[in-house]
Write a protein that binds this DNA or RNA. Sequence first.
DNA 1: AGGGAATCTTAATGTAGGTTAATAACGACT
DNA 2: AGTCGTTATTAACCTACATTAAGATTCCCT
Lengths: 193, 193
Amino acid sequence: MTPIDKLIVHFRKSITLTDDEAEIVGGCFTIVELKKKEILLYEGDLSSHMRFISDGCLRSYYMDEDTKEHIIQFGIEDWWINDLYSYLTNTPSKQFVQAIENSVVLQIHKDKLNDLYNNVPAVERFFRFKFEKAYVSLQERTINAMSKTAEEHYLDFRTKHRDIEQRVPQYMIASYLGITPEFLSKLRKNISQ
Amino acid sequence: MTPIDKLIVHFRKSITLTDDEAEIVGGCFTIVELKKKEILLYEGDLSSHMRFISDGCLRSYYMDEDTKEHIIQFGIEDWWINDLYSYLTNTPSKQFVQAIENSVVLQIHKDKLNDLYNNVPAVERFFRFKFEKAYVSLQERTINAMSKTAEEHYLDFRTKHRDIEQRVPQYMIASYLGITPEFLSKLRKNISQ
DNA sequence: AGGGAATCTTAATGTAGGTTAATAACGACT
DNA sequence: AGTCGTTATTAACCTACATTAAGATTCCCT
């Protein structure tokens, strides 16, 4: 299955597209191939594309006071990854997006997407849902962060994202959870005894 | 100025409405008057309205394990307040929305709002912006929470929300910041010396 | 196979913020 | 003005997690 095929299958999980529409939609995206560690979006760049992961694994993260990395999101096949903040506000990104493995990403420019909204209305509905879901999962994460302990966060992550846990180094999981790798190591020791 | 007038003025800050359209829009909202401490939305309720604050001050919060309250949002005149999570996912709310002062709220049911989208398209654009902004400010808050200290959060809050700071009790600000009132008290002492 | 980089673990020590509990100050109602 | 409920402060002690620094382990490259 080509990356574009995967994208169409992905769209068709939540909206209906005729074959003609699928053709149009597929034609609006461009392929980006990334080597492990390659950076797709730099801090300071304007994020003007929506990005679909066809293959591989990426992360978005930001640096606080130019030192420590904080991972905001992981993404694997069939997910979208972006700095939505920058995309929505047209301001320079505060985040990086980097490939953790060799990856294939399909992206569409904001302007082209706006045209597509007019030509294929179902796509607009798709992205409205997408933004709503993005909000919902961000709120879930924010609320959990406020009331749970680090060990609970880790256990939650393990049950919700087994697939990711097995593909990314442990210190990145620590960063995503907002703790140090040393402390995660200690937690794991406690848990397994 | 009536509550409905305030609402229309509010809409017209980001979209254009003819007088006829304004008439239609205004007619879709209903007024809710709340006494101080009265609860507008209970945990477990379905949040099926969008709610505009015409007068007063409210908060949304959730309870963790039926004990401690965590404030998620404050709202004053000219803001919207809701459990967007429940509204968007049609699931029972995990939050309460409560009046901190006597307040006047204008609300519109989801179904009516969906009709309104068809009759007055500008309204749909208004709410798309609203959801985008909600996402953006939630992400800002989440990222800040990860990298800043409690004292920084408090100082940020003071500069960004002076108006709110002067209207709500200090222990609620502590709850919003995710710290105990005792610790906020200590911070304030350090800051003022 | 072997050497360097990347990742993970362990342990000692430090600190931001929580808990408990008591007291103080404020505010609103009669 | 006095009383009661609400809100704010103080101080002693506690805990979850960070920091530092040293090894141990695994991974990958030629």
